[in-house]
Amino acid sequence: MGHDTAEWVYVGVICGILAWVGADSWYVEKLVDDVPKDAEVIKVTAQQWFWTFEHKDGTKEVGQLHLKKGQPYKFEITSKDVNHAFNMPDWVIMQDAIPGRINKAWFVPDQVGEFPIQCREYCGLLHYNMRGTLYIEDNK
């Protein structure tokens, strides 16, 4: 009975793997945490059960969002009633929309097309249908 070398080696290997997991994800998080300086702000407002997007020039879109390829965007996400989560799975954008808070997310579209926007935090009756569409258009 009692500990022996094998167990210590095993625990050491686990700690090594975990240290790598921690360091690598810290590095990547740091990389994606910085919003580019020239990002254009899009105000995203969630409410039961649709999305409103306000562009820099004040134009508003409901349920759909038109963006330009190659331009960095910063989303300022908030909610009017309950918690929602702004999510574009194809672009790995996911941030909760919480009343009384403004959360940020950013990305640079590098591909033209139509992509789904959805709510990922349970928000009641029509949570499943709180969807929108992202259109990315060519800048040129």
Partner: peptide, 19 residues
């Protein structure tokens, strides 16, 4: 010019899944 956010995150995901 810019960090490709989704590529960075998915690459991290695949590194960790491999491990």
């Amino acid at each position: 010019e810019y960090v490709k956010l989704r590529n960075e995150i998915w690459n991290l995901f695949f590194r960790m899944t491999t491990a």
